[in-house]
């Protein structure tokens, strides 16, 4: 049988009763849904990324300047270049292939 509480205490009694009988809502895949919907955390900020690239480029240039035998290399450079149309076409193809590969690699974050 139900009891009729006094009006003054009704609200507090009702909520006290609700507090003590609060059901545990089972996960049932809720956490999985939340985790699946989480966004990818952004990597380094743009300026940090650019700064790191610049620093390593400068470092590479400094190392190359220090260790590369530039005098000997200069001697190896031919003064006259004779190139046939077929060679030129092959060279153009290779350069295009290299450029295409570099573009693909950068766009797909393979490097």
């Amino acid at each position: 049988m139900n009891k009729a509480p006094t009006r003054a205490s009704t609200i507090d009694d009702l909520f006290a009763s609700a507090r003590t009988s609060e059901p545990y809502i089972h996960n049932q895949g809720f956490s999985t849904h939340v985790l699946a919907a989480l966004p990818e955390r952004a990597g380094l900020p743009f300026w940090a990324d650019a700064l790191i690239t610049l620093l390593f480029t400068l470092l590479g240039c400094a190392l190359a300047f220090a260790f590369f035998p530039s005098e000997k290399f200069a001697e190896l450079v031919p003064t006259t270049i004779v190139i046939s149309p077929m060679s030129l076409l092959t060279l153009t193809g290779l350069i295009s292939l290299a450029c295409g590969s570099a573009y693909w690699a950068s766009e797909t974050n393979r490097i």
Binding site: M1, N2, K3, T10, I11, D13, L14, S17
Partner: peptide
């Protein structure tokens, strides 16, 4: 809420 829940009866515990 007092008005809205005036008729609500708590069960005997």
């Amino acid at each position: 809420l007092r008005v809205l829940l005036a008729d609500w009866k708590l069960g005997e515990s």
